[in-house]
Every structure is written in structure tokens, then in C-alpha cells.
Amino acid sequence: MKPFVHVRPDSAADAIDAVAADPDAVFLAGGTNLVDHLKLGVATPGTLVDLRGLTSTAVEDLPDGGLRIGAGVRNSDLAGDPRVRRDYPGLAMALLAGASGQLRNQATTGGNLLQRTRCAYFQDVTTPCNKRVPGQGCAARDGWTRYHAILGAAQDAAGLRHCVATHPSDMAVPMVAFDAVVQLAGPDGDRAVPLGEFHRLPGDDPSRDTVLRQGELVTAVDLPPLPVAARSTYRKVRDRASYAFALVSVAAAVAVEDGTITDARVAFGGVAHRPWRATRAEEVLRGAPATEDTYRAAADAELADATPLDTEVGGNAFKVPLLRGTLTTTLRRLAEERP
């Protein structure tokens, strides 16, 4: 592990200045991913700027009826918040499906969004990875791809994919379905970025996970008021019943009136470089009858462009029928629930 300096500024503004001024500096929040990466040599910062006590740990009501979640709010506190449980149950379920009780006590809202892929090759500095070292190549695309993307992976001129990693967050999946907005503070002022635009697709530069600039700090995540979210859920399929990353996951919210779907929010986890808002599936669902055929059509619409990987070590073509089945069972359950 490379040596680094640990600093603890007095204010968020000082913290932002410290990171903005030093390209070798990074923020430290809950540490559950960063400390892991320090040990692996995946992260080699010169300075850790400790945010403890500098970001909000409050979940506040917004005037429009939405919620503002401080970046320092622990995953467990957010999952336990009565307003989240009542008005955005899919978010509480996603949080509770993530990691373990201990990790949820440590991980923060901001850190959860900024956690990096769990691609085994990304985490192993002895194998090539375009995300870790741009231009180095990708060991995953012809390797073990069980936890890798089937959607949204761009190819280079030779037809090779730059990066097939997935974003591992559970929390972000319902958040993106609910049109959450990320509040940022930076050296050049504050800005708000819709969560759906916050995480990037890999394109030709997978080293950048998000649109965040050096020194920019996530200060909060805003959830808009969203009545349909009160009937939301999160369904995660994994290789173990608990304490495992998603093979695929589905966050969904639907409103059904007289057998017709009047509103639908759908997002997928574990299948793309970012939490995947399933807009095509939503389009199919809105106005359609709440039937098996509709659910399958919604899945097929979203999966039409899926590009699963077939490799010697274990491909991920199974994720296509898996995601179809997971979306179907999730929508069926939601539609059957009485409001």
C-alpha cells in the first residue's frame, strides 16, 4: 500500500479546495470501497481528505414534498427512515439488499453512488484493465463475465469492448428509476445532475465512472415527490441468498387502474456500466394492460439491444432470460399488490 497523507479539514469548502488543488487527492467517506482499493493497489492517492462530520447526515423534507438525503447519511439509516420506507419502499429494499448489516452501517449515500465496479479483473492489478489504466486492454471481455454488462458497452474500432464492467450499487437502481437528482458542490460552485446522467457509459474512456470533476463533492441526493414510488419494489437475484452482488436486479414502481398500467418506473442493476433506466420497458408498460404479455414485451423491448458475452471462462448470455424472468416476476407481484 502506497503511503498517503490523511487530512481532516474544518469544512466542506476546505475539503473541496484540498481535493480541487491536488489531482492526487481523493475524498474519504465511509471507506468501505476506498480502503479496499488502497490495499489492492487499485487506488493510489497521495492524500485522503476525510469528510467525517463535513457532509450532512440528515434526511430532510423538501418543500415540494420530496426528500433530500445528505451525502453522509449511512445506508442503514436511510433504509430505516420511516419516510423512505413509506414513500419509496423500493429504495429501502434496495439498500437492505446491499452488502451486509455492518457495511450498511459504514457506507454513506455519496460513497454508495461513487463505489467502483467489482469486476474481478479491475480489482486485480496483475491483469489488464482499461478502467484502471486507460489503454491497457480489458481482461474481462474474454474472461469471467458472470457479473458483467449485457447493455450499454461501447466497442472500439476493432469491435472490441473497452469495458464490460457493471456498476455495483443497489441503492442507485431505484434512485435512478425515481428521477433522483445529485447535488454537487465544487470549486466552481454548486450544480445539480440528474442521477440518470451522473454515471457514465464506458464509451472510449471507462476510467471515468461519473461526470464528477476533480474536487466536486456529492452533498446530497434529492428524491422528487413521486406517488407511484409508494408502490415500488426491488428484486435482486444473486448467487447467494444474501451478502452478494447482483447478477441482475430490478427496481420498479407501477400504478395500475382498472387493469391498465397508468405509470411505470423501471431500472436495472448488474447489467450495465451504470444503473440502467429501462425507458423502453417503461414506454411499453404505460397504457398497456397489466398482463404477462405486457411484462414480457417490456422486457423484450429493453433487451433488444443486449450484447451478452460468450467466453471460454463463462459467458453471461444467461442474464438475458434471467432479466426477463426477474422483470416479469417483479411486475406481476407489484401489479397484484393492492394499493
Binding site: A120, Q123, A139, G143, W144, E312, V313, G314
Partner: peptide
């Protein structure tokens, strides 16, 4: 234990994988 035949190592060499 997933052996990557291209490199001869177990790719999922930790308790998360």
C-alpha cells in the same frame, strides 16, 4: 473457483467472488 485458462489464475480469488 474460476480458473482463467489465459492466465492460469483463479479470477474470483476473494470471499466476495
Amino acid at each position: 473457483s474460476v480458473m482463467d485458462p489465459r492466465s492460469g489464475h483463479v479470477v474470483n480469488h476473494d470471499l466476495a467472488n
